Amino acid sequence: ELREAFRLYDKEGNGYISTDVMREILAELDETLSSEDLDAMIDEIDADGSGTVDFEEFMGVMT
């Protein structure tokens, strides 16, 4: 189920989504998050600083 959700956002099928897209997902899930909260969450999610979120990083957030 998580893989299907990931595929919805990984429109190009390249195995990752951008941190911008991940930020939008988080904002949709919790509309009360401030910009600073979102920045901090993205920094934590994208631990390797690649600017992308792969499936493993995505799973870590969603579980």
Rank of each mutant, 00 (worst) to 15 (best):
V61T: 06
T52Q: 11
T63R: 08
T19F: 07
E36G: 09
I25R: 00
N14D: 07
G15S: 02
G60W: 15
L2C: 15
S50N: 08
R7G: 14
L38C: 02
I45W: 06
G15R: 01
D46G: 03
A27W: 09
V61S: 05
F55D: 00
D54F: 13
D43S: 14
D43E: 13
D10F: 08
M41E: 01
Y9P: 04
D54Y: 14
S50F: 05
E24L: 14
T63M: 11
L2M: 09
S50A: 05
E4R: 04
G49D: 05
A5Q: 15
E12N: 08
D43P: 03
S50G: 05
A40V: 10
A40T: 08
F58P: 00
G15H: 03
D46Y: 03
D30N: 13
G51W: 02
S18K: 06
I42H: 01
T63H: 09
S18I: 03
E36R: 09
M59V: 13
E28H: 13
D46W: 04
F58L: 05
E44V: 11
R23A: 02
I45R: 01
D10N: 01
E12I: 06
E36P: 05
L33T: 03
G13M: 06
M22P: 00
I17T: 00
D48T: 11
E44N: 12
R3M: 13
S35W: 08
T63W: 04
E57P: 02
S50V: 08
S34A: 07
K11R: 09
K11T: 13
A40Y: 10
E57G: 15
E56W: 13
L29M: 13
S18T: 12
G15D: 03
D20V: 13
V61F: 15
L2N: 05
G51Q: 05
E12F: 06
I25V: 08
T19A: 06
R7V: 14
I42M: 10
T19I: 14
Y16A: 04
S18V: 02
Y16G: 01
Y16I: 05
N14L: 13
A27P: 01
S18P: 08
I17K: 00
E28V: 11
D10L: 06
V61L: 13
